[in-house]
Structures are given as structure tokens and as C-alpha cells.
Write a protein that binds this DNA or RNA. Structure first.
Lengths: 233, 233
DNA sequence: GAGTGGTCTAGACCACGGG
DNA sequence: CCGTGGTCTAGACCACTCG
């Protein structure tokens, strides 16, 4: 049967997606090769390729040369998180953004910092502690280490008007990074800064970024109680 | 100046990425149009398009017809999280996977469940409580609600051998979903099931999925202390 | 109105990897 | 080996949107 000709890759993607979701093509099924689909839908192979590639990028298809294309066995959920600047995140919700630098020092990093960053344990790093606020209430505590050997300009900055978060994004481009999400209880200092109880469960983001092979910065963001990260699947 | 001809889109992407990261093209800069880049690199415009589109999808470029292509002002970090089956996640680390159903009942959902799911508050839903274990130690507690009106086959399943997590993935394809990450303290029952203290901060994943416009299931995964979700940026 | 990206085509060659 | 997806090309038309 010839389907009604679908000539653009979006329509084609939709149709293939429909066949997958309706179990017309169950998980594991090998689907027709590109040339055949092109014939069925009356379009060029490259258009089919575009549609199938898009589905493969979303994890719904598995493609291999010669082996062909199959419906993925486990459509493992992929969530794309967009991590905005805290300031933008707060302002986007119509709240007023506040910022306060709590501490700035140049000091020897603890092993928990120099280790992952791969920096010399006997070379001082810049350490900044800052509080982000939404509508004048504590929102997140930023505990950051910066390697001045990689970003010398950071030594000239006081971080009283702009957060390290934002300053680095503007002034220190990175080539790679990693991010981790977890949960943690605050210590006494952190609880005080966030104005919450010491037994509250707090959401934590740890991030580290590199420029080429050199670690730029390592940061731990501790969010006030109730914080959630949401996204569509 | 003619750059050494780059004929494949990956090399081209690399070169453009280099110019962005090296600030040769600072944030906000309009970059040459596709046709010009094609001429510079000695390749077809569609190849340039492929490379630039790829960078735009990663949020590094902003493209608009007529306006042209610009380097994104805020390279807001995007993290792609792949949420695997708990079983696969555990086995991938070389640990033994264990599973235990703790409870199965058909009961009226609390408002906190029927509300978000958009189901009638006076129609019973399937409620399953199950424990996932790694190397015989509690790993995550799965607290799930399933609408049997959408997935009737779920009524035939005892969930003693297979987790709702895995059963649903196999038997109830979804068309959309949402996921949220947060931190929470366990209540007494949860602490007992996870064999941890009641004041521990636990990582929580809430997920809800739909088929078309009908909510299939809502689940809350409570992870044992120390759990982290990691990914590259 | 006109310039730029978005997309489609028909054909070609190639790289990978299954049999 | 040889079938399949991956990619490139040259050209074309179109859609969006800025000026």
C-alpha cells in the first residue's frame, strides 16, 4: 500500500513515530531500509534519512550500517535539562533577583577540590562563597573554586556585583564539563546562609568545567528547600 | 584567507566551534552566511548547513531566516540525561540486581495523585510499592500509581517478578512525559524500606507519562543515600 | 521586497560491519 | 564481499522575517 505521499521530513518523522508508538512496529523490529521507505512515501532517500536520523538521535531507533534500522528495545528516557543562569531562572519566574557575596579568599584547596580539578594541592585557588536570592529570600548557595592559573582575570574581580556563576560564563568559555545532581543535608553554616533547618533535605548541583585539559572551576550549588528541576521527556 | 578545505561537516563543526570558544567570534557576533562559509571552505552549502544546524541544536548558535546566524549570547548549559531502567543501571555497574514487591492494591488515589494525573478522584487506581536493590542492599523505592482505564493489562500483572518500571516500559508506550528531580527526607515507612535514617537527604525523581491525552502512570522514585545523577555537558 | 536559512532532489561515492 | 546507512554535491524552490 502506498501511504499518502509525505514529502517533508517532519511529516515522515511523525508517521514513523506513530508506527512505533502504536506498536505497528514493535520494539526490536527491523524497519524497511531507507530506499524502500523513500519509494513508499515518494520522496528522496535523503529526506527519509533526515527523519530516521532525528528519531535515532532521540533514542527511538537504532541504526547500523548493513544491519539496518531497528526500533529501539528500551526507549530509555532522555531528558534534556537546560541549566540557565540562576539570575535568569529567577527573573523568568517574575521574581526579583538578589545577590550577595559572602566570602572571597585565595587559599589552598582541600583535597576534595584539588583532586577532581587535578590542580596542585600546594597552589592556592580562588574561593568564593555567594548567595543568590529570589524575592529577598535565600535561593541558592554558591560555593566555588576557581583556578587563577587558567583564568587570571578572576583575580581582578571582587564578585560583589556579579556572581562567579555569571562572570565565568561571560569571561571564561569552557570546552567541556560535567554536572551531577544529588541530595544533601546542609552543615550549620550552610543552613544559616539559606535560613533553613539543619535537617532539611537540599537539592545539590555539582559542576566542573574545563578549557582544553585544564580545569577552570568547580562549583557546588546548594538550593533552598523545595527546589525542583523539571523537564519534559 | 582560504582555510585549508574542510569537506566534511564534522571538521567544519570543529572549526566553527573553535572560533566560538577562542572568542574569535565572541558571543553575539553575526557569523558569515552559509554561502560564504561554503565558499571559504570549498564545500557545498548543505554541508555548512549540517554543521551549523548541529551547533544550533546544541545552543551555541542562534539562527533566523533573513537575520542570519549569531553566536549565542548565553551558552546556557544543556545536560542530556539518559534515564535507564534501574535494573540496567545497576547491572551496568557490575552489581547484582534485586527486586521486591512490597505492596499492590487497587485504591482511591489521594488528591496529590488524581490531581496531576487528571483522573477521577472517585475511581480506584492501581498502587504499587516496590523496592529495587543493588548487591542485596536497598537502592530505590518505587511508589507508583497506574490508571487501569488506560492500561487494562496492568490488572492482570502481579508485579512480583518484574517491576512496574520495566513492565510499563515494555507494555505501555507513552507519547509524552515529564520528569522532575528534587530532594526529600523519607517518612518512617520509607526510611525503613530503604534501611536508612529518617533525617537522611534523599534524591527523588518524580515522573508522569501520557499516551495521547490520557495519563498512564505517576511514579516517585526515592533513592538510597548517596545516589547521584551524573552527565557530561 | 529581498536576503537568509530550511528543505528537497537525484545522483554519487564511501565506510562500516554482518554473513 | 556486498548491502546498508552516512555523507557530499549542485541546484532549486520555499518560508520566514527584517528593514
Amino acid at each position: 500500500m502506498n501511504s499518502p505521499a509525505l514529502r517533508d521530513w517532519r511529516s515522515l518523522r511523525k508517521e514513523v513515530l506513530r508506527r512505533i508508538q502504536s506498536r505497528e512496529w514493535p520494539p526490536g523490529t527491523p524497519i524497511p531500509k531507507e530506499a524502500d521507505l523513500a519509494a513508499e512515501f515518494g520522496c528522496a532517500r535523503s529526506t527519509v534519512n533526515r527523519a530516521l536520523r532525528s528519531l535515532a538521535e532521540d533514542g527511538l531507533l537504532e541504526r547500523r550500517r548493513k544491519a539496518g534500522t531497528r526500533v529501539a528495545l528500551t526507549p530509555s528516557a532522555r531528558a534534556v535539562l537546560t541549566i540557565p543562569l540562576l539570575r535568569e531562572e529567577i527573573e523568568a519566574r517574575g521574581q526579583s533577583y538578589g545577590y550577595q557575596r559572602l566570602r572571597l579568599e585565595s587559599t589552598l584547596p582541600p583535597a576534595a577540590v584539588s583532586g577532581p580539578m587535578g590542580s596542585d594541592a600546594d597552589r592556592p585557588l580562588l574561593h568564593v562563597l555567594a548567595l543568590h536570592m529570589a524575592d529577598h529570600r535565600p535561593y541558592a548557595l554558591e560555593d566555588r573554586w576557581i583556578d587563577p592559573g587558567v583564568v587570571p582575570a578572576a583575580l581582578e574581580e571582587a564578585f560583589t556585583q556579579i556572581s562567579p556563576n555569571e562572570w565565568l560564563l561571560r569571561n571564561a568559555p569552557y570546552t567541556s564539563g560535567e554536572i551531577a545532581f544529588s541530595a544533601s543535608q546542609p552543615d550549620r553554616m550552610e543552613a544559616m546562609a539559606l535560613d533553613c533547618g539543619g535537617e532539611e533535605a537540599l537539592f545539590v548541583i555539582d559542576r566542573m568545567t574545563w578549557y582544553e585539559a585544564r580545569a577552570i572551576t568547580k562549583v557546588r550549588l546548594l538550593f533552598a528547600p523545595g527546589y525542583r528541576v523539571r523537564t519534559a521527556l
